[in-house]
Design a binder for these strands. Sequence first.
DNA 1: CAATGTTTGATTGTGTACAATTAAATTTCT
DNA 2: AGAAATTTAATTGTACACAATCAAACATTG
Lengths: 149, 149
Amino acid sequence: MSTPSENSSAALLKLENQLCFPLYAVSRMLTKAYQPYLQALDLTYPQYLVFLLLWEHDELTVKELGEKLLLDSGTLTPLLKRMEQKQWLSRRRDPRDERSVLIALLPAGQALREAACHIPEQLLGHMGMSQDEFEQLRSQLNTLLTKLA
Amino acid sequence: MSTPSENSSAALLKLENQLCFPLYAVSRMLTKAYQPYLQALDLTYPQYLVFLLLWEHDELTVKELGEKLLLDSGTLTPLLKRMEQKQWLSRRRDPRDERSVLIALLPAGQALREAACHIPEQLLGHMGMSQDEFEQLRSQLNTLLTKLA
DNA sequence: CAATGTTTGATTGTGTACAATTAAATTTCT
DNA sequence: AGAAATTTAATTGTACACAATCAAACATTG
């Protein structure tokens, strides 16, 4: 597959030899694969990720959400406001430190958990991977993430 | 690492057990890693991907670009118009089929190739991966892409 | 305690992404 | 040829993403 000449700058510049493109494309296509399941719950994919954290932690600051999701306030603030409008969560300043905003689950957000809890299993089907392949890929991506983050 | 209980719906719903999140995060962080190199050329990451194809093919329709990048016209049309304004490429209807728009490199776009040709090698440094790891990850992602696309 | 510096969100502006709709051109079918 | 179906871009509207800037609250230090 890789002849000596394929390490030249010219070959490295071809789309098909990039690692970045399949990452970018798979990420978008996987988001699309979630879409039918999430749309049924009126959720977007980044909102689903916020819920994954809130279902685990119940209350987090915007900063903590940002650190865990690697998203900044320019993304999170409007996204969380939309989720607040749907009565899924509450936003209030931390009385002990007015700079922080505490995000907490409301009953409607808590209830969504039951409706969403089978989404991961359903997505596994779309990917058609063995448990081993899944784990290996996840581990490689997490390693790469720590190098890039 | 994975106890029997970790295959429950509850465990599958944790952010840390997802494959989708590291994919999403690595994709965004990798785009960020390109940023300093691309910004020096006044390019965005998706625009860079368009160039990778045009440097190979010289002239493509919007449809062909969309098929190769898995992007639709709602994304490509405004993106290509911005690139046209910078005189990097031309947009014209195909005389033989007026429904198609031909995208062709202009000299300024052709010239950018020399300025960009060492970007892939520089990015490899940021990822700190061996050739083998790189190839293995790329191959797994491409397999997954064909399943999702 | 007052001045300085830091932390934390919010805001603004630009650029993707993508679903859904529209419109024009072409192809197909009778 | 003419109607119907298909193909291809463009448009519209919503929702991220993120750099850059701002503003308020807190912490630190002399």
